[in-house]
Structure formats: structure tokens, C-alpha cells
Design a protein around this nucleic acid. Structure first.
Length: 805
RNA sequence: GCGGACGUGGUGGAAUCAGGUAGACACGCCAGCUUGAGGUGCUGGUCCGGGCAACCGGGUGGAGGUUCAAAUCCUCUCGUCCGCACCA
């Protein structure tokens, strides 16, 4: 329809304007109160997809809304530009990952601008920029100095086909490599780690101060997995109960059940295995250990494999310190060397897995907690009085645990212990397209940090990408060979690069001060902007990224690099739902992308933004379906014909309609402001539609239409900017302040009061909002005939009166 | 197995936070006007059953419960989705 609404021209014009006029640039000494809005920086995968549109529309509307509310808003954008796809593309096409990545960044930047998202483009940060690499490496070295980085052997996922380590996420559920299809194995390799476990307790405690979705907090809490219990020493003994001198520690959350211990289990990797295994069991144990080592994590953790194949007797015994009785020591693959002490005491009476094992291997079962009379299960894990436990008998769980720990501590055998499921963060990746780890290896001095003044260590350009998946750095003589910073002798560089999660663990700090050439950021700039007031991103980052970034922030603060009191990076987090296509996850790897650019070419960015907001609650996953796009597009045309000065589609309101419409405008301000603050954008769009429908029915006023445009400006920025400029002599709606409602005008004059009889609606009365209880009751009783005296009348004026007969 | 979320018309969803008219708003569909036709635009209708109508009865996965009043709170149950998963 030709209503003069030239979508493409208008959107181009205003996007140009915001950029030229630097509307959304902000200086660090801006006098306004600060507000830091951040959408998780994207991996540059090419043109934006619908997930981006959703994410960056939320961010952009908050930026515009907060700006209209008088804040100096920091709205940066950057690119998580290291990562596997660029490297895989390089292997396939020979194109250098940087060339490839820069092209994808260009495409993504363009489509972000096409949806009208505004940023302070001077502050762009890219992970692969040498200026950023330099400071990522510098931070790594500070952590190394502080003892937060160490090198250790670790079992990693190794793909024999790709000749490289894989992240857990790259191993499919059948234990094969997602790229080559080869069966992934475990290998012991020297790897670099961040000591995130040192912060486990703080990471847990500080969750309380965050305004984050409950489920994300729960996920983090479970991931950290704090458990309280006791650790104590066990003496190794022979078949006759004579101690051999070796000891090992076990960890348990139920020391109160120790009298029920009928065997012990060590992890197959436990250091004592070779020492304690008796000659007659040696072959069997060796075969078992070998098989476990070769099996994948998946197989190992699978409960499919029969228990009879999952354990083996060592021939050795251990003395239960509680009753001095010897119990057999087994190995089992389900005992993990990475948790607790890698050894457990087994109490089949109180633990189902121990029960199953005992049954399979024909080991005794002793109950140490009295189950309730109606209990018909096997192991009983609930509370009850202790039995068969000498001096613990009769005590309930909490008291029994306390007494057992006290007993262990008095004798110096064991102590109260806290354990965490959280593991240290393995940051080494055998990859090219990542931030190089700034270390050289000297035959005499071992691993030596690259001197800070030599940073950044940047990967060379003249490399050959091999289809084997091996990092080209390993074969680049110029990069590999260097000299030791300590002795000047020949040395080789570390060829592993950092996990890309390292890059994303501090980029939000760099945004505060991206120009800094002397430091990763100045404390004062970070003090000015941090913490992020509103962080926006997908739930898929609920654990890893959000945990790592919290760890980095705490560590940087403790190292006096960031302000000491900056304990948390993201004060408020919003996790948006995913946009799915046909029920599946929408992602670049599945290729099922719907292009936002196509919609920008037709209905325009404003209609697309509005539709994505209108689709459903922001936190919910949605299946993509553009059926409703007609609705938001039609709505914007209706707004255009309503507000465009030369349009006569909607006549001016007359008589009573003037006040009615203006009052509705004031109520709209109240409603929309509330809904913006509650992230109820879908209902806010509905409110705009309702209001527009009212103006079409009752006629327009200048105030009503101007208010609509102002309130709609954060969501549909282009059309509102154009209409406002036409109505107000070139003025800019996004530079106006957010409207404030007149209380008296916003108050409703008439309320529909429901009259119920026994909870069923029997009448609807129009009353004033200040009607009192007596009057409400009187009106209600008048309006319905109930035949006799009511038993009871519940009046909740002005909304409802319920008459009980 | 443990933890969490969700279940409402033909469809997306609103009302759930704070118990108080269930179905806002939109898509779709139906009708009228507009138009040369189609489309666009404008107006009206659209949970189910009964009734010409006013109205009456039923209705938020299922079964109970609390309450004057339950989509909303509680218990159980079924289903869907997500996270963690042999964590001692």
C-alpha cells in the first residue's frame, strides 16, 4: 500500500544519522549516571541469524530506553573471533583464518547495523587483535606469577584421526569425534590449568548477591558441587589382617555409617594400585586397568556395562579404623581419581551403588541406619537411628556424623573435609586459531614465561594448514625455535593456544578502556563502568563462560589489577530463550538459518524487531515461524498513517474522546514503563497495539500520538525517529526524555466491579475506584436477587464483591 | 537417578510475580464496506454446549486439597523440555 512509508530509505537514513551524530558513543568522563548494557559478544559466523536479532534487539532497546531515562549508557560491541570454524575453513580452503574471520566480522557488523542496533563502535574489541592478544597473554603471566596457573599431566580427549585434543563438547555421545568420526581416546598430556578451584567457595558464596535467573544460579551451584564430609586414613593389610605400612585416604559424606563398611574401592589410576595388588591378582588387575584406560569417558560412565565387568579384587585389605576389621580392597571404574581422594569406603547398607556392587561380588551387607518399618527398598539413604554401630547407636544422622568426625579428629585419623565437584580449568588447546600461550621451553630452565615487553606473541602468517588437524605452529620453524629469556640458549615455544573462553573472560573490562596501551584497562575506567548493569545472552553460557568470567574478575581484583571491591562482573543477567527451527536447535552448524537481512529488505528492521519481541516471553524458547510478522508490519503502517503529519487516516478526537484518549496515553506510560522494567516486552507491544486501535476508534490528539512515538522509540527506532522529526521540525525522539505520567490523568475513573454469588459472576457494575466497602456491598446486594439474607459478604472494592449464600 | 522449568482456543501467547471477569494482543478463519477483480485498507465476529435473545451451563493435561474465590497456592499423577549425571 502506498502510504508514503518508505521503509528502506528511512532505516538507512537513521542508521547513518546515529553513527554520524555519535548518539550512542559515551566518554569515560560523561557526567550522567552510568549504565552498562552488554549483550554477550558474538562469535563472528557471518550474517546475523534470528538468535542474534533477538539478543541484540533486547540490548539495543535497553540502551535507548536507559538513554531516554537520563543515563550515560556504555554500549560496546566486540567479536569472539578466535575459534574452530575459522581453522576448519582454513584447512578446507587454504584461506588464512584471519582473512576468513575479518570477512565474517564485516558481515555480522553490517547485519547488526541493519537491524538498527547501536553501539559505541570506537570501542570494538576483537579477540584476535594483537592489541587484545597482548593483554590476554599479560593477564596469563600475572596469574602464573600469582600461582593461579600451573602445568600438569591431564587425561584429555584425543582424536587419533585429527591428531589433536578435543573439548568435551566435541565428543559425541557415542564417543566419536564430531569432525572425523574416529573413536576418541584418553591421553595423558602436559597441559596448562587455571586454578579456578581456589575460588570455589567464593564463587559459591557470591552467587547470593547476584540478580540472576534462579536456574542459572542453581546450575552454577550444582556445578561447583560443594559437599561436606570427612576424610580419613585407612591402613592397608594382608589377608591375615597384618598391616603392610601403606595407607590411603577415603572421603565420605556419611562417616556415621562407617561401621557398615564391608569393602573399599580405589580408582584404577590410584597410585597405590601397583603397590598393594597381590601377586596372584596381578594379571587380572593389570588387564582391568588397561581396559579402563583405553575406554572412553562415555563408556566408563555408562551404566549399561554390567557391574561384574566393572570391578576387580586386588587381593589386598584395609583396616576399618572404626572397628579394626579388615575389608577387601577392590578397584572399580566408577571411582574417579578426580573427585575426593580417588578412593572410597563402601557401605552397601546405605548406598545403592555399593549395594549393587556388594551383591555382584558377594560381599556382606550391614545396615547401620534403621530403615522405617514400611521400607522395602535395598540401600536405605534416609535418616533414622544408627544401629550396629557401637557408640553411635541410637543417634540420628546429623548428630551421628558430628560424633563420628569428632572421634576421627580426636584420634588424628581424619578430619572434617569440604569437597567440590568443580575442577581446575584446562586451558591448553592444540589449535592454531587461538591466543598463543606465552611460554618457552628451555632444556635448562624448563617452562619460562615470555618477558612482558615481548608481548604479544602472535602466530605467524606463512603457515600451512594440514588436513590432519595438527596445529601448523608445531611445524613452523621460525615460530617454534627461539631463545630462552633466562640464559639465551636455544629454546622452543609453547605451540598450544588458549581456550577461547579465556578471551571472553575479561573482554567486558577491556570495553571500559579499549584504548589503553599500557595496561589491559585502567582501574579508574573499570571503576567508572563496572559492574555490567545488564548482561544479556543465551542460557547455553550459564555455566562455563559465566563461571570463568566471575573467576577472572575476582582474581584480577585480588591481584590489584582491577579494583579490589569488584567481586562480580555482571550485576544483573538476563538469559534469553533460543530460537528454534522445526523443534531443533538453531545454529550455524545445522545450516537451518533464516536470514534477518531478507526481512529487512521487505517489512524492514522495525517490523522484524517488533515481531521478535512480540513472539513470546523473552526468556522462553520459541519455534521460528514468521506468520505473525504481518501483524507487526501492519501495525507500523497503522502508526505511520496515524502520526505522519500529512496523513488524514485518523481524525482528531473531539468532545469527551479528547480526555479519554489523553488519559489512555498516561496509563500507557505507566504500563509500558513497568513492562520495560520487567522484561515483559511481548505485552508491551500488545499495549501499543491496543492504544493504536483506540486512537483509530476515538480519534487522535497531539499528546497521545507523541507519547506513543516516544514510548515506541526504543523498540522501533527508525519509524519513530522519522515520524517525530516530521512532527517536530527535525527534532530527535531518542534525545527526548522518557515520558512521565500525570498521576491524576493516569488514574482510572471507572472500574468494573464484579459481583459474584458463591464465586460465580452474576453482575458487572461500573463504580469509581475509591468506592468503600459499605458502598460496594450495598451496590452489589442491590444488583442481584439472592432471596434471603446472605451468609457472608466479601467485599474487595473496587474490583469485586462475593456474596455467599 | 538428582535438580529445574513448563502444560491455557485452530496457532503464538495474555492473565501466574501479588489468588478475584480466563482467553488481552496478534496470526488464521468468517462476514460487511472499500476495490474493475485479487490484494491492500477500514469495520464487525470468532473457547465449547444450549438458546432468537437477554442469559444459562461447562472449560486452563488429570486426580485430590486449601479458600468466600484457584489457570495462579499445596499434594499426588501424566506428559514435554532443559541442566547435571556412578561426585562417594
Amino acid at each position: 500500500m502506498d502510504d508514503g512509508y518508505d521503509i528502506q530509505a528511512i532505516e538507512r537514513k537513521w542508521q547513518q544519522h546515529w553513527r554520524d551524530a555519535a548518539t550512542y558513543q559515551v566518554e569515560n568522563d560523561d557526567p550522567r549516571p552510568k549504565y552498562y548494557v552488554l549483550s554477550m559478544y558474538p562469535y563472528p559466523s557471518g550474517p546475523a541469524h534470528m538468535g542474534h536479532v533477538r539478543n541484540y534487539t533486547f540490548g539495543d532497546l535497553i540502551v535507548r530506553y536507559r538513554t531516554m531515562n537520563g543515563y550515560g549508557v556504555l554500549t560496546p560491541i566486540g567479536f569472539d573471533s578466535f575459534g574452530l570454524p575459522a581453522e576448519n575453513a582454513a584447512i578446507k580452503t587454504g584461506e588464512h583464518p584471519r582473512t576468513f574471520t575479518d570477512a565474517r566480522i564485516e558481515e555480522l557488523s553490517n547485519s547488526l547495523q541493519r537491524i538498527g542496533a547501536t553501539y559505541d563502535w570506537r570501542r570494538v574489541v576483537k579477540s584476535h587483535d594483537p592489541n587484545y592478544i597482548r593483554w590476554t597473554q599479560w593477564i596469563f603471566l600475572q596469574f602464573l606469577k600469582a600461582g593461579l596457573v600451573y602445568r600438569a599431566k591431564a587425561a584429555v580427549n584425543w582424536c587419533p584421526g585429527c591428531q589433536t585434543v578435543l573439548a568435551n563438547e566435541q565428543v559425541l555421545s557415542d564417543g566419536t569425534c564430531e569432525r572425523s568420526g574416529d573413536l576418541v581416546e584418553k591421553r595423558e598430556l602436559e597441559q596448562w590449568f587455571f586454578k579456578i578451584t581456589q575460588y570455589a567457595q567464593q564463587l559459591l558464596d557470591d552467587l547470593d548477591q547476584l540478580d540472576w535467573p534462579e536456574r542459572v544460579i542453581t546450575m552454577q551451584r550444582n556445578w561447583i558441587g560443594r559437599s561436606e564430609g570427612a576424610q580419613f586414613e585407612m591402613q592397608v593389610a594382608d589377608a591375615d589382617g597384618r598391616t603392610t605400612g601403606e595407607t590411603f585416604a577415603v572421603y565420605t559424606t556419611r562417616p556415621d555409617t562407617s561401621f557398615g563398611m564391608t569393602f573399599c574401592v580405589l580408582a584404577p589410576e590410584h597410585e597405590l594400585v601397583d603397590v598393594i595388588t597381590t601377586p596372584e591378582h596381578r594379571d587380572e588387575v593389570a588387564a582391568f586397568v588397561d581396559r579402563v584406560r583405553k575406554s572412553t569417558e562415555i563408556e566408563r560412565l555408562s551404566s549399561e556395562t554390567g557391574l561384574d565387568k566393572r570391578g576387580v579384587f586386588t587381593g589386598a585389605y584395609a583396616i576399618n579404623p572404626f572397628n579394626e576389621q579388615p575389608v577387601p580392597i577392590y578397584l572399580a571404574d566408577y571411582v574417579l581419581t578426580t573427585y575426593g581422594t580417588g578412593a572410597i569406603m563402601a557401605v552397601p547398607g546405605q548406598d545403592q551403588r555399593d549395594w549393587d556392587f556388594a551383591t555382584t561380588y558377594d560381599l556382606p551387607i550391614i545396615r547401620t541406619v534403621q530403615p522405617p518399618e514400611d521400607f522395602d527398598g535395598e540401600a536405605y539413604v534416609g535418616d533414622g537411628p544408627a544401629i550396629n554401630s557401637e557408640w553411635l547407636d541410637g543417634l540420628h544422622k546429623t548428630d551421628a556424623i558430628a560424633k563420628a568426625i569428632e572421634w576421627l579428629e580426636e584420634r588424628g585419623i581424619g578430619k572434617r573435609t569440604v569437597n567440590y565437584r568443580l575442577r581446575d580449568w584446562l586451558l591448553s588447546r592444540q589449535r592454531f586459531w587461538g591466543c598463543p600461550i606465552p611460554i618457552v621451553y628451555c632444556p635448562d630452565h624448563g617452562a619460562v614465561p615470555v618477558p612482558e615487553e615481548e608481548l604479544p606473541v602472535v602466530a605467524p602468517d606463512d603457515v600451512e594448514f594440514r588436513p590432519t588437524g595438527e596445529s601448523p605452529l608445531r611445524f613452523h620453524e621460525g615460530f617454534l625455535h627461539t631463545t630462552c629469556p633466562l640464559c639465551g640458549g636455544p629454546a622452543v615455544r609453547e605451540t598450544d593456544t588458549m581456550d577461547t573462553f579465556v578471551d571472553s573472560s575479561w573482554y567486558f573490562l577491556r570495553f571500559c578502556d579499549p584504548w589503553n596501551a599500557d595496561m589491559p584497562f585502567s582501574k579508574s575506567a573499570v571503576e567508572r563502568w563496572m559492574p555490567v548493569d545488564q548482561y544479556i545472552g543465551g542460557v547455553e553460557h550459564a555455566i562455563l563462560h559465566l563461571m570463568y568470567a566471575r573467576f577472572f574478575t575476582k582474581a584480577l581484583a585480588d591481584l590489584d589489577i582491577a579494583p579490589a571491591d569488584l567481586r562480580e562482573p555482571f550485576a544483573r543477567l538476563f538469559t534469553q530463550g533460543m530460537i528454534r527451527l522445526g523443534g531443533g536447535k538453531m545454529s550455524k552448524s545445522k545450516g537451518n538459518l533464516v536470514s534477518p537481512d531478507d526481512y529487512c529488505d521487505t517489512v524492514g528492521a522495525d517490523a522484524l524487531r517488533l515481531f521478535v519481541l512480540f513472539m513470546g516471553p523473552p526468556a522462553d524458547d520459541v519455534d521460528w515461524n514468521d506468520k505473525g510478522m504481518e501483524g507487526t508490519s501492519r501495525f507500523l503502517h497503522r502508526v505511520w498513517r496515524l502520526a505522519e503529519p500529512s496523513s488524514d487516516a485518523v481524525p482528531a478526537a473531539t468532545g469527551d474522546a479528547i480526555e479519554e484518549v489523553d488519559r489512555a496515553a498516561h496509563r500507557l506510560i505507566v504500563r509500558v514503563t513497568d513492562e520495560f522494567d520487567r522484561w515483559s516486552y511481548n505485552t508491551a507491544v500488545a499495549a501499543f497495539m491496543e492504544f493504536t486501535n483506540l486512537l483509530y476508534k476515538r480519534g487522535q490528539t497531539q499528546f497521545a500520538v507523541d507519547t506513543l512515538l516516544q514510548l515506541l522509540a526504543p523498540m522501533a527506532p527508525h519509524v519513530t525517529a522519522e515520524l517525530w522529526a516530521r512532527r517536530h521540525d527535525g527534532d530527535h525522539v531518542h534525545e527526548r526524555s522518557w515520558p512521565v505520567a500525570d498521576k491524576a490523568m493516569a488514574a482510572v475513573e471507572q472500574v468494573t466491579m464484579i459481583v459474584q454469588v458463591n464465586g460465580k459472576v452474576r453482575a458487572k457494575l461500573e463504580v469509581t475506584p475509591d468506592v468503600d466497602v459499605a458502598e460496594a456491598e450495598r451496590l452489589a446486594l442491590e444488583s442481584v436477587s439472592i432471596g434471603g439474607e446472605p451468609k457472608r459478604v466479601i467485599a474487595k472494592p473496587p474490583k469485586l464483591v462475593n456474596i455467599v449464600v
